[in-house]
Design a protein around this nucleic acid. Structure first.
Lengths: 341, 341
DNA sequence: CTGAAAGCGCTTACAG
DNA sequence: CTGAAAGCGCTTACAG
């Protein structure tokens, strides 16, 4: 393997100069830089990350923590984050909590992040106070995407979940629905994120503003997955006195709801209207009405914000502040006025 | 930050002994190991990965390359891989090619893998010969998942795509279909993987075995996505003389096909039967017939195989050999006999 | 703008 | 089973 000494020798300079030239530091003359780059090229030299990290104290790596990479929102965010990080020359260390009970603790406690990453991107991962303490002690910069916990000093990129849920619910109210069910997140979930709390609030507030009293029997908790939406809908139908519309806390749950309704012989939207939140890839194909949220945009922005304090002249730019991106009601074929009685 | 010297001092041994004890090497007495572990615990010591990597020459990291993390199969594989790697104490460096034209080259050429990972997991990523050469020169062990290129010395975990496609096509033939369309992958795709070639072959062979001549007008190429399946179906219907059944090369394409059929006023399965390959999470909900492939199992197995030469006593176990996992026809509601004329 | 030298924090022969 | 010492391959004050 060629090392920095080889390049230095060929270019006729010191290793310090090679190091500076290759990293693009300004304190190298144009002519020297040219010679170094040519030598490196000729020798097919690549810096040793371990050596560079040990000597420089920077890892060139960002740790990305997501609850489940297989879920639409998280996969989409990671894809956007990956593109930004890699084009900035940063590595992406992936931590997928994946429903494992102790995964979160493992990630945050066992010094997995410590010295492995220069920054953390925490996507929709709520922290218990012990975890938060552990994370704070790592003293790393970071960015939060979506909901979760507020980490002191970490900006957050998200949508307004209360508003998004309100928008979905109001769409149903405007169509004339009054018995509107809600499928929301599972508070028992070990990986529970807080998104569902806000979305429920938006739902309830919209109902109350329209003079409708939220009915606990129409509010079913489940997982934020297709299967979760399916189960919740089965439960909803079991309770009897079916709603005329369902607001699912995410599109995947909405899809599960549609499947369960179809199995029960109910048509969408003729018998029951369904709306979700996300604008999942499949939602167009299914004709699912939804409140679209910009997942790629959230990922891209979060990645830029997480790189911000790492790249460039530290301390120059003010710390990034939190951003709330807009959502947009997308009406398709799964919502319609309730049937006349 | 506590360093190894601090632990050594507290435990009253040399740093070499601390290093050995912490890594579980057998050449440490039980009593000493106990003292070292207690000291490390007390000081909340965590080894510096950079230092360890530089000195030891191992990175404790596996690079995972996928075409698109947002696609069901790849997301599911990565989730399984992540669980195995992290529970073995390995880091996962994620490379998502994501449709970017030069991403593959960037990953393989720019020494991104070199010295960053001890092994590579290449998921459904075909290589041009220049890329293959570059990869071979890195001299890393690796495992291939799904199709792609054969890399000398790298075992492969996959399904039999020809058989899977044959099974899907035969199901349609058995129902009485003769005009069976096929939606397959796009050969122009910069990230084209070879899966679609095998699946087309299985489709054609099954037709011929049943005495049906494959009709090129019923064979439409597109992307392996929901949108790709949608577009391909629109094209298929535009050509006129619609088929009575569609075999889509993956479930996402099948979902797109179902959406396009519905938009065209065709019912599934009464007017047109649809079958895919995968058993995507949503397929149950949609009632989509499919040939199920074990994505989680492939990921888990591949991860174990990739760790195999890294962990334990090198050279002891024979190199892992390739594995072909079974697929299974799952009949749901999207396939039925063709209507009588 | 450039170089000599120390140091980053480990692991690994080597010797005992 | 344990330790002293070299070395992994860089980056960074420091000096000029």
């Amino acid at each position: 393997m060629t090392r920095i000494d080889d390049v230095a020798r060929l270019a006729g300079v010191s290793t310090a100069t090679v190091s500076r030239a290759l990293r693009g530091l300004p304190t190298v003359s144009a002519a020297t830089r040219r010679r170094v780059l040519a030598a490196a090229e000729q020798l097919d030299y690549a810096v040793s990350p371990s050596a560079s990290r040990l000597a420089g104290g920077r890892t060139g790596t960002v740790a990305v923590v997501v609850p489940r990479i297989t879920r639409w929102f998280f996969g989409t965010v990671v894809e956007a984050v990956e593109a930004v990080l890699h084009s900035a020359g940063y590595d992406l260390l992936l931590y997928n909590l994946g429903g494992r009970a102790q995964a979160r603790q493992r990630v945050l406690r066992t010094a997995n992040l410590h010295k492995r990453a220069d920054a953390v991107l925490l996507v929709a991962t709520p922290l218990r106070s012990a975890d938060l303490t552990a994370l704070t002690e790592l003293d790393l910069p970071g960015v939060i995407v979506s909901s979760g916990t507020v980490v002191p000093g970490w900006p957050c990129v998200r949508i307004d979940d209360v508003a998004a849920a309100g928008s979905a619910t109001r769409h149903l109210l405007d169509l004339g629905h009054r018995r509107i069910a809600h499928l929301s997140g599972d508070p028992e979930d070990e990986l529970a994120f807080t998104t569902h709390i806000d979305r429920r609030r938006g739902y309830q507030e919209a109902l109350r503003s329209a003079g409708v009293q939220p009915d606990p029997r129409l509010d079913v908790e489940s997982h934020f997955t297709i299967d979760g939406g399916h189960q919740a809908t089965v439960e909803l139908l079991r309770r009897g006195d079916a709603p005329t519309a369902i607001f699912a806390a995410c599109d995947e749950m909405a899809m599960g709801a549609i499947a369960a309704l179809r199995e029960a012989g109910l048509r969408v939207p003729q018998d029951v209207s369904v709306i979700g939140v996300d604008d999942h890839d499949l939602s167009v194909a299914l004709g699912l009405s939804t409140v679209a949220q910009p997942a790629t945009e959230q990922g891209r922005l979060a990645a830029r914000m997480v790189l911000d304090p790492l790249v460039g002249t530290a301390g120059t730019s003010p710390p990034a502040s939190s951003v709330i991106l807009p959502t947009r009601l997308v009406v398709r074929d799964s919502t319609a006025p309730p049937r006349a009685h």
